[in-house]
Design a protein around this nucleic acid. Structure first.
Length: 573
RNA sequence: UGGGACGUCGCCAAGUUGGUUAAGGCACGGGGUUUUGAUCCCCGCAUUCGCAGGUUCGAGUCCUGCCGUCCCAGCCA
């Protein structure tokens, strides 16, 4: 990316990208000379995996810094040792990298513990913080309610020396967990509850994944975040809307502490997508309770899950630009994410043929002893991707869905007595339908029209439908996983009275164990999306083996027939 | 009922200091091309900006009052 004029930035859809209220505001600040470049940070807490909502924040932070000549730090907000783990650090770094971003500095709030401690002392000395010896419950009760002011703690007016001594003893480990807490002395009657003497430090004998047992007191988020921003000389601290109420507190610390810079916080609406959940708490539950197979389950909206599902970094970036950045809370249809994947893959994924649910077809007039070969382009619009030979033999497999004995008029695929083109090969006619003892269709006897072979003049002959196929003799058995939305209601967490897991879609995954794929798919390269013609975009699963392929379906192709069929069915035709 | 924020087409979202017929994308509808019912290409799609008043020659943009939605009472972030 370059520092181009925003109107020159465009997504593949031609939509202006990156022009939103934050962009506008930063541009003005630059022009007014208030800042000379924009330095941002992406500040995850290492207590879980990143999800698509984080991607929005990542794209925003990196693109703003990039647009305005600065850089972005990756900072782990690790002030709560009870929840944080090293493995999440690794996963987060991998996800950010995979999305296509390179951070300037890898930072940890825990690296600032010494400085933060000094800042706390500074506040104490200034008479702006005090040590409170009351229980958490008592402090909570004294905080008041939304409509009633809080009442001051009896410890609120403790002498500075005494506060200092107590705080030092807190650090020295002289007290039990929870015995004391350091609080800012602001305003117990403030209408903004965050200003009612918030807790700055708590005693917690917890092994920290990075600082070990060096500390038994840990700073809270409020006392950590802004100061960390200042220490790193972050110019703009972009965060989600729920921190709006914290901004006065953020500024209060910056104003009362000898920090090296004056960062400013700007809030934007977090991402919501329908038919899924996007909170770390809920995603953690899905993993911990075994509703999914882990953080990287392809049904998960995590970056790791989307990656395994077959999403591309580019499609996620495009999605984030397309949805924009505002302060209005919105819910984006899951289909928007899927369409961005299709748009990205349509132009660059190679095409192959695969049959998910095979139906045997015997070409009665195909007498060649040796297989013949059809030449198919690897991409219909991009000849540079080359072509390949696909074997044709007397016995083929086609998709069960591509044959109907009792077909409606609009059904353009195979039916008894009807004709279809086998993609890249020739036109076949269904002469006979063979059933098993239960009446199921198990085999089709067809004859092909030799004149209609691709490349021959007879190929000009038009038939309504074209279907995909594989040679039975050459096809490679494969396992294919089809994924659907994880929840069967648009807003699983909407009703607080109902546990969201009750809305999990029991049919969110379908396994096609008997799929048959064309030979070139036998050892398809990992991490490489491919289009199975007429079916969708797929990617080898991490458990895929050469000769024993396993594919995940990332997304189907747009399917107007499915819609039409549904409409016809609704009319009763 | 305290404080903070938001409300422009079904879903997103532009809308300069108030000034011609309210961008764009998605979705949707219609048509064309097509050996993927895919892609691609045309065309259509808000007399109206949560509602009601007011100021003004002129308001989505200013004022007043309502209505609706979200967030805040962790020693979580």
């Amino acid at each position: 990316m370059t520092h181009s004029n925003p109107t020159e930035q465009a997504t593949p859809e031609g939509q202006a990208a990156g022009v939103h209220f934050i962009h506008t505001r930063l541009k003005k600040e630059i022009e007014a000379g208030q800042v000379d470049r924009v330095i941002t940070r992406f500040p995850p807490e290492p207590n879980g995996f990143l999800h698509i909502g984080h991607a929005k924040a990542i794209v925003l932070n990196f693109s703003m810094a990039d647009t305005f000549g600065g850089y972005t730090n990756l900072r782990f907000d690790d002030t709560n040792p009870a929840k944080e783990e090293q493995r999440y650090i690794e996963a987060i770094k991998e996800d950010v990298r995979w999305l296509g971003y390179t951070w300037q500095n890898e930072c940890y709030a825990s690296d600032y513990f010494d400085t933060l401690y000094e800042y706390a002392l500074h506040l104490i000395d200034a008479g702006l913080a005090y040590v409170d010896g009351q229980d958490a419950e008592v402090i909570k009760a004294q905080r008041g309610t939304l409509t009633e002011p809080g009442i001051p703690s009896p410890d609120r007016d403790r002498a500075v020396d005494e506060n200092r001594a107590l705080f030092e003893r807190m650090r020295a480990g002289e007290f039990e967990d929870g015995a004391y807490v350091l609080r800012a002395k602001i305003d117990m009657a403030a209408p903004n509850i965050n200003l009612r003497d918030p807790v700055l430090y708590r005693i917690r004998r917890q092994h920290h994944y990075r600082t070990g047992d060096q500390w038994c007191i840990y700073p809270t988020y409020d006392f950590t975040h802004g100061q960390s921003d200042a220490i790193e000389h972050i110019t703009h601290s972009l965060c989600s809307l729920e921190f709006e109420d914290h901004r006065p507190l953020y500024d209060w610390f910056i104003n009362h502490l000898p920090v090296p810079a004056r960062p400013q916080q700007i809030e934007f609406a977090r991402l919501n997508i329908d038919f899924t959940v996007l909170s770390k708490r809920r995603l953690t539950r899905l993993v911990d309770e075994g509703h999914v197979d882990g953080w990287d389950d392809p049904r998960m909206p995590t970056i790791a899950g989307l990656r395994r599902r077959g999403f591309t970094p580019q499609s996620i970036q495009n999605f984030c630009h397309e949805i924009g950045v505002t302060k209005a809370e919105s819910v984006i249809p899951f289909g928007v994410l899927e369409r961005n994947l299709r748009d990205d893959l349509n132009v660059r994924a190679e095409r192959r043929m695969a049959v998910l649910k095979p139906l045997k077809v015997v070409l009665t007039n195909f007498d060649a002893e040796q297989p013949e070969y059809a030449t198919l382009p690897n991409h219909p619009q991009d000849p540079s991707l080359g072509e390949r030979q696909v074997p044709i033999t007397k016995t083929l497999y086609i998709e069960q869905d591509d044959f109907m004995e009792d077909a409606p008029k609009k059904f353009f695929r195979l039916k008894p007595g009807g004709e279809v083109r086998l993609r890249g090969a020739f036109i076949v006619r269904c002469d006979e339908v063979i059933h098993n003892s239960e009446g199921q269709v198990v085999e089709l006897r067809c004859s092909f029209d030799p004149e209609s072979r691709s490349g021959l003049p007879g190929a000009e002959r038009k038939v309504k439908g074209t279907i995909h196929w594989v040679s039975a003799e050459h096809a490679v058995p494969a396992n294919v996983h089809l994924y659907d939305r994880l929840f069967n209601v648009p807003h699983p967490a909407k009703d607080k009275a109902v546990d969201f897991v009750t809305h999990i879609n029991p049919d969110s995954v379908e396994h096609c164990g008997g799929a048959m794929v064309e030979p070139s798919l036998a050892d398809w390269p990992a991490q490489t999306p491919v289009q199975f013609e007429r079916l969708g975009y797929f990617i080898p699963d991490i458990n895929s083996l050469p000769g024993k392929p396993v594919f995940n379906r990332a997304v189907t192709l747009r399917d107007t027939w499915a819609k039409l069929e549904k409409a016809l069915r609704a009319q009763g035709t």
